[in-house]
Design a protein around this nucleic acid. Structure first.
Lengths: 107, 107
DNA sequence: CACCCCTATGTAGAGTTCCGATACAGTGGT
DNA sequence: ACCACTGTATCGGAACTCTACATAGGGGTG
């Protein structure tokens, strides 16, 4: 897990049933295309993400076809877990924290 | 900012006045030494962290001297801000659809 | 038509970072 | 002699990010 990957997963989890495409995710995450697309390809390789080309005629629509990405069932579960783990590992300052350490066990 | 750096900062912010040393931070963060020490050196270079050798006689103490790290005044402020920004950028992957029913396709 | 900006996906390469392996040095146990 | 433990630290390959750039078509302006 890296921060860009986490941003992509978070964006996809906002509305897991919604179809998302690259440029859309670039705007949502603030990531440049050179970061986003490799991330999307890696997530597909891991089986977390599935993709399909939009079924339009680019000429008639007046724009290039989009490639729609959506989390697989496995992806939704894994992504939720991964983000929860990440958040648990990075509390925002102060507050007690277990870490990896065995806290002084109360009697 | 990367995740390992964030973990180190979070660990140091738990008790900003407390003296922390490498092995201690390894256990708190779960990071291997090959990751942790370069991070600590980078944070020192950035002025967020200061370090001093523990003033003990290793022979008498029966263990190697520790190198204590603590956040500078600037470091505390910057670290808090950085972690807050990171948390804001990675919202938790939860959304309404609570439980078994899908929200997307009403019958 | 040349020129630029827009949508949209994607690659190339340089630089940065991570982490397993390894090193050093001393204590203590069997 | 050998291993386990405390403690700090580096090396080098793999992985990742991100600035450019590439492609390819639409639309507008001079």
């Amino acid at each position: 897990m890296t921060i860009p990957v986490a941003k992509v997963l978070a964006a996809l989890l906002v509305e897991p049933d919604e179809q998302r495409y690259g440029l859309d995710l670039m705007r949502l995450t603030g990531l440049p295309s050179g970061t986003l697309y490799p991330v999307l390809h890696r997530l597909q390789g891991a089986g977390w993400l599935a993709a399909d080309w939009e079924a339009i005629d680019p000429v008639a629509a007046g724009r290039p076809a989009r490639r729609y990405y959506r989390l697989t069932a496995v992806g939704v579960t894994q992504a939720r877990q991964a983000l929860a783990d990440l958040r648990a590992a990075i509390p925002d300052g102060r507050r007690s924290w277990g870490g990896t350490e065995p806290t002084g066990a109360p009697a």
